[in-house]
C-alpha cells in the first residue's frame, strides 16, 4: 500500500438545509430531510458534523480540529474511532464521501 495518509477517505458536509439539529439533554436529535429519517446521536457525532464543512477532510484532519477543543485521549484510538463514525455517517447520508 502506498502512502497511508493519501489513501484515507475524505468527507464533506451535506448542505446545511438538509439537516435539522436539535440537542436534548445528553443526546442530539438529527432530522435528515432528504431521507426523512430521524437519528438519535451522542458525542462525538454532533462534534464531527460541526467540524466538517464544504472542504473535504479525512479522519486525521477532523481529529486535529476536534483535539483543539476536546480531550480525545490516545490519538491513534481516537482517529480510528472517528474513521468508523465517518463511514457510518456517510452510509446514512449525514455526510458525503468527497
Amino acid at each position: 500500500m502506498r502512502g497511508a495518509m493519501t489513501s484515507l477517505p475524505h468527507y464533506r458536509a451535506i448542505p446545511a438545509t438538509d439537516l435539522v439539529i436539535r440537542p436534548l439533554a445528553d443526546i442530539t436529535l438529527l432530522y435528515h430531510r432528504p431521507s426523512g429519517q430521524t437519528h438519535m446521536v451522542a458525542s462525538p457525532v454532533p462534534e464531527i458534523l460541526a467540524a466538517l464543512g464544504a472542504h473535504p477532510l479525512d479522519s486525521h484532519a477532523i481529529h486535529a480540529r476536534l483535539a483543539t477543543c476536546y480531550d480525545l485521549g490516545d490519538p491513534d484510538e481516537a482517529r480510528a474511532a472517528i474513521a468508523t463514525h465517518l463511514a457510518e455517517m456517510a452510509a446514512l447520508g449525514l455526510i458525503r464521501a468527497a
Partner: peptide, 8 residues
C-alpha cells in the same frame, strides 16, 4: 424520564 428516552 429524560427527554431523550421520552423521544425514543
Amino acid at each position: 424520564v429524560d427527554p431523550g428516552e421520552c423521544f425514543m
